[in-house]
């Protein structure tokens, strides 16, 4: 019967509950809804908020016997240590270099691909290309990097077989620092262009065909129609994705870089995330590693806010 009452209350009183009493009553009535959301609230409490509490380690010297709370404060010691360390500029340079390269090369390609695929008139061919282009997205990072190692092997790799066939010297791509960034970025583009274009493709397929028909009557050429109808339609989506990407310029994912690292290419391949892992878990310098991680997230957040503000000014599209 209580449930019946609850249903009626909802429907007879669609206005927001203004006074505290009826709000409380509604909350009690809806206790099930709070049970629905409770597990996720707990999840984030344990695995997100509890670690955020641990971030104070960055300003302390961690002593295992005293725990996080009891360890002595040392202020900005670990940050200063990181900024003045020999590796600092190299790591920052690699991190920013790889992300900017990814962004500049990787961002426009899915848009161009979607625009071009959209113009293919044979429906079956279009579908086929699309389906195949998604497939690499589902390959794991380990397999992706494994494929790079096999294909680029200096003696047995197919890339070097081709290079030797053309009469050049074989190149040890993986171990040469100068190739690291390009290998990283272009293998990513190979893997994710199809998937990243899905969203643009979907937006394009929602365009009202009448727009194109009337443009044709007005004598617009194919390229003009793409440029003046299709491209503007994609812009809001593109801007949002650009903001999100730009917000993570200072964070290069750990998984792929770590797998691609070799002792010989380390000068070009050490980034913040791999450094945090090495000093933190491999050398057990907990406080120092936490400080580096915190520095990274603060910069990321500032970038996100900054890019969002710029985007808002330029195109009136923004995250919030």
């Amino acid at each position: 019967m209580a449930e019946l009452g609850q249903g009626v209350v909802v429907n007879l009183d669609p206005k927001p509950h203004h006074n505290k009493k009826s709000k409380l009553k509604k909350m009690l009535n809806d206790y099930q809804l709070y049970l629905f959301i409770l597990p996720s609230v707990l999840y984030f409490l344990i695995f997100h908020y509890a670690p955020i509490y641990g971030v104070q380690l960055a300003f302390k010297d961690f002593v295992a016997t005293k725990g996080i709370w009891g360890s002595p404060w040392v202020g900005l010691k670990h940050f200063k240590l990181f900024f003045s360390s020999y590796y600092f500029w190299e790591i920052i340079g690699n991190t920013v270099g790889i992300s900017l390269y990814s962004l500049i090369a990787g961002f426009p390609i899915p848009i161009i691909f979607a625009l071009m695929l959209n113009e293919v008139s044979n429906k079956h061919y279009k579908k086929l290309v699309q389906t195949v282009s998604y497939a690499p997205h589902f390959i794991s990072t380990v397999v992706m990097v494994g494929m790079l190692y096999i294909f680029l092997h200096p003696v047995y790799g197919i890339a070097n077989t081709l290079i030797k066939f053309l009469g050049f010297e074989a190149v040890d791509f993986i171990n040469k620092p100068e190739y690291f960034k390009s290998l990283y970025v272009w293998s990513d583009i190979w893997q994710h262009t199809g998937w990243n274009s899905v969203i643009y493709f979907a937006v394009l397929s929602n365009i009202d065909p009448e727009q194109h028909e009337s443009a044709i009557i007005d004598g617009a050429s194919r390229l003009q129609r793409i440029w003046y109808i299709n491209v503007p339609v994609l812009m809001p989506t593109a801007v949002i994705l650009l903001i999100l990407n730009a917000g993570s310029i200072m964070s290069v994912g750990f998984e792929k870089v770590y797998l691609m690292q070799t002792p010989l290419n380390i000068k070009a391949s050490e980034v913040i995330s791999t450094y945090v892992y090495k000093v933190g878990l491999q050398s057990a310098r907990y406080s120092f590693s936490t400080a580096v991680g915190l520095f990274n997230s603060v910069i990321n957040f500032m970038l996100l806010v900054l890019v969002n503000r710029v985007a808002k000014k330029l195109s009136s599209t923004s995250l919030w």
Binding site: I46, H48, A50, P51, I52, V55, S273, V276, Y277
Partner: peptide, 11 residues
Amino acid sequence: FSGGLIPTYMV
């Protein structure tokens, strides 16, 4: 915001 690798590891 996230705690990062080490604080998560400690939890």
